[in-house]
Design a protein around this nucleic acid. Structure first.
Length: 108
DNA sequence: CCACTGACGAGTG
DNA sequence: GCACTCGCCAGTG
């Protein structure tokens, strides 16, 4: 990642803590990063990531357990889904993840 | 400095 | 479940 504000760094740090096989919501990442309510900034921060990054951005989904799509990258959406399935995360018929079973519990 | 935009969330009707 | 509103804050023109 490149030089980012402390907010971005906090977000990247949190995303890096998401364990394999689990997912976190944007709001959850924002709260865990010390900026509750700034879910939007989480999405923006991830969007600002380079293609070559060590941050597991694919483990971040929206509050509905669905994959949010970017400006115009359906392929990236598919890739994210594939990566998650490869880690053991299941998708419902509606293409959503049952957060009750796969959401990362920060307050454990 | 001001206005607008953007991988979103939560609340309300 | 759908449509609408407000709040978040960094980037850009």
């Amino acid at each position: 990642m490149m030089n980012a504000s402390r907010t971005y760094r906090a977000i990247y740090r949190t995303v890096n803590r998401i364990p394999k096989g689990k997912v976190a919501t944007y709001g959850q990442v924002a709260t865990a990063s010390g900026i509750p309510g700034a879910a939007r900034q989480v999405g923006y921060a991830l969007h600002a990531l380079s293609d070559v990054t060590t941050v597991p951005w694919h483990r971040v989904v929206n509050a509905q357990g669905a994959i949010s799509r970017r400006s115009n990258a359906w392929d990236a959406e598919v890739e994210q889904r594939s990566r998650l399935q490869a880690e053991g995360v299941e998708f419902s018929e509606a293409g959503r993840i049952p957060l009750g079973r796969f959401q990362w519990r920060t307050t454990a």
